[in-house]
Write a protein that binds this DNA or RNA. Structure first.
Length: 138
DNA sequence: GCTCTGACGTAAG
DNA sequence: ACTTACGCCAGAG
């Protein structure tokens, strides 16, 4: 298996994980990285989502993958090259019912305590194994 | 093919 | 609480 194949597999895995994020909720790049089994590559998750924008006709595109529900660990929408993109992400989140606040420096923040979604593992990965593990979430 | 950058995160000073 | 350093690795120049 070539490295490029593994890279592609990583992309798909990330996309699938992002699709698991319920509407009206947000998570972090680092958590997605952790869910896909590569907790040391949160940046690559961002690379995946960035690449997603140009895959308008691919199996995974900006419409099929809720990329907007992924922000950084600080609860802030990561500022990127295109400021309009950040604003677009905030608007998309608000459209889903997520409250986005603006900081003193204009940073768009989301209350992770209210809208944060950080499961121990992917729901699809559970495969209805056995949920007698615990029933405690807060 | 080499270098620099970046939609991040964590540790250390 | 803030700033710096570093790891990680796919794109772009």
């Amino acid at each position: 298996m070539a490295r490029s194949d593994e890279a592609a597999a990583f992309f798909f895995t990330v996309y699938r994980a992002v699709q698991e994020i319920p509407e009206g909720k947000v998570t972090s790049y680092g958590h997605i990285a952790k869910l896909v089994g590569t907790p040391q590559r949160p940046r690559q998750v961002g690379v995946c989502l960035k690449h997603l924008s140009q895959d308008a006709g691919a199996r995974y595109n900006h419409e099929s993958v809720p990329w907007q529900r992924v922000i950084n660990a600080k609860g802030v929408i990561s500022p990127r090259s295109q400021p309009s993109g950040t604003r677009n992400q905030a608007a998309a989140l608000q459209a889903e019912g997520v409250t986005v606040t603006t900081g003193a420096l204009g940073e768009l923040m989301v209350d992770l305590g209210e809208f944060g979604w950080f499961p121990n593992s992917l729901p699809s990965d559970q495969d209805e194994k056995d949920e007698s593990e615990d029933g405690n979430e807060d």
